[in-house]
């Protein structure tokens, strides 16, 4: 019984969301607002138990680790948000997260986004026993990297030779994006099939 109720609720909500494809309607609105409300409530529950109880209440009051009063105090500064006069208080917790994040991120970005990528780029011809087609691919790959980088130059006018190179760069970019697009399509369709299977199989039992 509970199984039928639960799939029926799920199915009605699924259909309500799908109805948006036709046009905005009261069913979609009900589902949409319900979804927003529930999702915020869900986050509150998660944050209360996994965050507040786990990191604040238990360590400070049960385990007596008073050091965590300091971050709690910093976090409480967010409450300055409620009055215009005290809204500047929220800058402190934000400044702390930002400073730590930005500083820590610099060497990390260099390492992960530049050095490791460079390493992969330098060894395009280093495959042992590389064939003619491999060399052609490598050259084309480098051409793609260089022209696309040139496209992103902000201080070079896109005219003359630079203009042509940047144009080739944008063509490379579009082919690259097309590939990402094509790769995604099948995944999305299988998601849709998943939803239809829920409706026709789990709920209506039309297909077994």
């Amino acid at each position: 019984m509970i199984n039928i109720i639960q799939t029926t609720i799920g199915a009605i909500l699924t259909l309500s969301i799908f109805s948006f494809l036709y046009k905005d309607n009261p069913l979609y609105r009900i589902a949409e607002h319900l979804l927003i409300g529930i999702s915020v409530g869900y986050i509150i529950g998660q944050q209360y138990h996994m965050g507040f109880m786990n990191y604040v209440i238990t360590p400070i009051f049960k385990e007596g680790q008073l050091i965590y009063l300091i971050p709690s105090f910093i976090g409480l500064m967010y409450l300055g948000f409620f009055s215009q006069k005290t809204s500047w208080l929220i800058r402190f917790p934000i400044a702390i997260s930002l400073g730590i994040g930005a500083g820590y991120g610099i060497p990390y970005t260099f390492q992960a986004s530049i050095f490791i990528q460079l390493r992969e780029t330098l060894t395009v011809f280093s495959e042992p026993g590389i064939t003619g087609f491999g060399i052609f691919s490598g050259v084309l790959f480098l051409l793609g990297v260089f022209t696309a980088i040139v496209y992103f130059f902000f201080s070079w006018k896109h005219r003359g030779v630079v203009g042509i190179v940047a144009k080739v760069g944008i063509y490379f970019l579009m082919i690259g994006f097309g590939a990402s697009f094509g790769l995604t399509v099948m995944g999305r369709i299988s998601l849709l099939i998943g939803r239809f299977l829920f409706l026709f199989k789990d709920w209506l039992h039309i297909i077994s």
Binding site: I114, Q117, L140, L143, A148, I149, G176, A179
Partner: peptide, 12 residues
């Protein structure tokens, strides 16, 4: 080739 190349260029 093109996909990996553009990803790398954008990444830089």
């Amino acid at each position: 080739v093109p996909n990996a190349a553009t990803k790398r260029a954008i990444g830089f």
